[in-house]
């Protein structure tokens, strides 16, 4: 039985998703992000969607490297992504033990405003249509759906 503290509605990788495993090297991370942005442009997603996706992508990658893989030089991240005309899907899985998303403090409370970290998940949730962190908490699935006209 699932842990209710984790968040999943069962969004799985689309069958035609691109799946890659990369190191923490910035060049590799940037290449995939550029591929996603190019696909978004081809499928007619606008500037606001690209800004949102770029932001959520950076936060998810940063969490995977620092919190998941603990900055290990040999750490790997698995990425699955797919873009079509209606939505952007990105899954990022690290090699860590996972985390409980409900245990994160609310960085928007007055007493936490001066805390220099802990805003990644807040930003992902603000900019994506859906953010899922299924058990054990070492995967984040990001979905951005194109608004209906």
């Amino acid at each position: 039985m699932g842990n209710p503290q984790h968040e999943s509605t069962g969004v799985s990788d689309p069958p035609n998703a691109v799946v890659v495993s990369i190191s923490h090297e910035r060049t590799a991370i940037e290449q995939i992000c550029q591929s996603i942005e190019s696909a978004m442009s081809r499928h007619g997603h606008g500037e606001a969607a690209r800004f949102a996706t770029r932001l959520a992508w950076e936060e998810a990658i940063s969490n995977a490297i620092h919190h998941g893989n603990k900055n290990r030089a040999d750490g790997r991240i698995e990425i699955a992504w797919h873009v079509d005309a209606t939505r952007i899907f990105i899954r990022i899985t690290d090699e860590g033990a996972g985390f409980d998303p409900t245990a994160i403090i609310d960085p928007t409370l007055d007493e936490n405003l001066e805390c220099p970290s802990g805003r990644g998940l807040l930003l992902m949730r603000a900019y994506m249509t859906r953010v899922e962190i299924p058990e054990p908490g070492n995967t984040v699935r990001l979905v951005l759906e194109k608004p209906q006209p």
């Binding site: 800004f51 770029r54 932001l55 950076e58 936060e59 940063s62 220099p116 805003r119 807040l122 930003l123």
Partner: peptide, 10 residues
């Protein structure tokens, strides 16, 4: 054009 939460932290 873009900044991350790590930049906000700095």
């Amino acid at each position: 054009d873009h900044l991350s939460s790590a930049a906000l932290g700095a």
